[in-house]
Write a protein that binds this DNA or RNA. Sequence first.
DNA 1: AATAATACTTACTAGTTAGTAAGTTGTCAA
DNA 2: TTGACAACTTACTAACTAGTAAGTATTATT
Lengths: 190, 190
Amino acid sequence: MVRNANIKRVILDLAESFLQDVGYNGFSYAHIAAELEVKNAAIHYHFPSKEELGCAVIKRYRDRFQLWINNARVKDLAPEKKLDWFFGIYTNMRADNGKICLVGSLEAEFNSIPAALQEETKAMNRELLVWLEATLAEGKEAGVFHFNGDAVGKAAVILSSVQGALQMARALGPRKFTAVVEQNKQDLLV
Amino acid sequence: MVRNANIKRVILDLAESFLQDVGYNGFSYAHIAAELEVKNAAIHYHFPSKEELGCAVIKRYRDRFQLWINNARVKDLAPEKKLDWFFGIYTNMRADNGKICLVGSLEAEFNSIPAALQEETKAMNRELLVWLEATLAEGKEAGVFHFNGDAVGKAAVILSSVQGALQMARALGPRKFTAVVEQNKQDLLV
DNA sequence: AATAATACTTACTAGTTAGTAAGTTGTCAA
DNA sequence: TTGACAACTTACTAACTAGTAAGTATTATT
């Protein structure tokens, strides 16, 4: 029986969307099943436990990110264009729809999610930060980015601020997120 | 019967701690009751609904913040000392114990919390940001803070970055939070 | 045509959730 | 001493949670 060949992908899409919208503790198998007009057990057939589903979402996201940063379309960009691409990821999460990033969502609920999902979250955050550190160092070296201290500290400020800004946009409106991105760029470039 | 005269305060303390630890969807009346060695219904007696309890936590926090910023011990400080006091609030939340700020916790779960709690969260975030904007503007005027653009944008970056950094500290360790605070200070002062 | 595998549904469990209604106990004031 | 009130407990409900076991229908393979 093949009702939907991409059912596994669609479940992951929905889970990812729910994570960004209501968080890990905010959605259930019933929510996903209802969207797909199937029964709860159908979701359990594809992802036996919620922990596995959550981990699969993050694993896919990590793979996606690694594919992008190793692709020539990003790899060969100038540092300031790389940064624009990076901010674009967060902009495309649509703060205007109240979505936040996966890292922020999972870290906010960190102490009430399964251990395996905590580990995936750690790995994802590390990978994002490592790439940003390298990009900032590259840009400083090239003389296009200007900041005091090392790239490690600056990367932490930028990543945590966009993560926080997506959350802040829920309370204070999506323009708050745009303002944070613009201020970060201004801090680096002027 | 007066078993504990401060029971209401103790419930608020516990609820606040749970919010910072596991989030609104991560704790229940049963968790609070267990800590106090009473039954669930005892908590409902003091706070009929979880929504009211959540709101009461935030109201108390807002009052506390207003009291501090209107107190001479903060009001009369130099801008850079005001900022140190402000960062101190977040440092005292103890990132090393995996705690995050209330604003970040509630905004991460924003789309799955009651409307009244969303409003409290909005008000709290606004008040923090307004104070930070004024302090940054005051410091720039006095020549002790240096940043491009206006205080509104810079305040948004700083506030969202410390909010995000407390969450990031869960995945990458408490030193990540310290690094973000130090980088923010360096960006402003050097 | 028989068999096996896939992708489900039906029906269930045990645990947790917020919340309520009614009864109990201790304290205090008239 | 009586009664009112505060602060509970007991006992419950209806809804939801993740997860499972067994059965069913469709499709692919031999």
